[in-house]
């Protein structure tokens, strides 16, 4: 380049300086308003007439220390359940969604069963499904009945699979028909078109809502405690019953939030990336 190097004009320098001052002011204002609101909330709660009693029964240090190891041990069960249930429910959801798109009279019963499944298990409360599986299935006294933990996990997988199937189906239907036409025109069969063209685009598109449902699943695996296994919630419940103090519940709650944070972070990141890709498109 032969021209002189670019130097911002005085007008632009003025603008930059102004924006910088504005940015500093914004941060100060935000910090001040947060401090004021936080103080007000703190004063409102701690000056309540019953605060001392609430503090004693919900935020008691000795109770927290006593039951923390058991709750953490229970959380390990939740974490394993989460990983297993998430993978199984995603696989089941994808399978059901694909079954629902099958065409042709031969597949009518398959479509009908898949549709019936998504309709009924999205309506059925998860708690009832867990009870039915954990207490109903062993009642059959079949040989080789799996443990209550596995049965409860299956109940969660079957319920969430129905929701995830609908998310996948929405993704499949959002892929434009011209993409299928292009794939078929190249000689790809229906199955090849789904596998190589439709599903990769569909899954990418619905990744944010899928992850969001996984965050919901993350806390619903806690419902397994209803069936008996000692997870974080059941461990907290035992602690509460032992000392008549609610602190263990608060501990379990905090641990669940901490467990969710990475997943929520990933969800936000994926959503942002998807939005950017969408905007960058033609």
């Amino acid at each position: 380049m032969t021209t002189d190097a670019y130097r911002p004009s005085d007008v632009q320098l003025g603008r930059t300086a102004f924006r910088k001052r504005q940015a500093v002011r914004s941060v100060l204002v935000a910090a001040l308003s947060t401090a004021v609101l936080g103080t007000l909330l703190g004063v409102a709660v701690t000056s309540a007439p019953g605060w001392d009693r609430v503090k004693q029964s919900f935020f008691d240090f000795h109770n927290a220390k006593e039951f923390f190891p058991q709750i953490l041990e229970g959380l390990w069960l939740n974490l394993r359940m989460l990983v297993f249930c998430a993978i199984a429910a995603l696989a089941l959801g994808l399978l059901i969604a694909v079954l629902r798109t099958l065409r042709g009279p031969v597949f009518f019963p398959v479509r009908a069963i898949a549709t019936l499944y998504t309709y009924s298990f999205r309506g059925l409360p998860l708690i009832i499904v867990i009870y039915l599986f954990a207490f109903g299935v062993p009642g059959l006294r079949l040989q080789g009945t799996p443990s209550v933990t596995v049965l409860g996990g299956a109940a969660i997988v079957i319920t969430y699979g129905a929701y995830l199937a609908e998310v996948f189906r929405a993704g499949i239907e959002s892929v434009h028909p011209s993409q299928i036409a292009a794939a078929r025109s190249l000689g790809l069969t229906y199955r090849q078109s789904m596998r190589h063209v439709v599903l990769p685009q569909a899954v990418r598109r619905v990744a944010p809502p899928l992850l969001n449902d996984t965050v919901a699943l993350q806390k619903d695996v806690g419902l397994i405690s209803l069936a008996g296994p000692i997870d974080a919630i059941r461990a907290a419940q035992i602690g509460v019953a032992q000392n008549a103090n609610f602190t263990p519940y608060v501990i379990a709650g905090v641990l669940f939030v901490l467990l969710a944070l990475p997943l929520i972070g990933v969800t936000d990141w994926v959503t942002l990336r998807a939005a950017r890709r969408q905007n960058a498109g033609t």
């Binding site: 036409a181 292009a182 794939a183 685009q201 498109g281």
Partner: peptide, 9 residues
């Protein structure tokens, strides 16, 4: 096709 229909992924 008129609108190319390349596979975007």
């Amino acid at each position: 096709f008129q609108s190319y229909n390349l596979f975007p992924h």
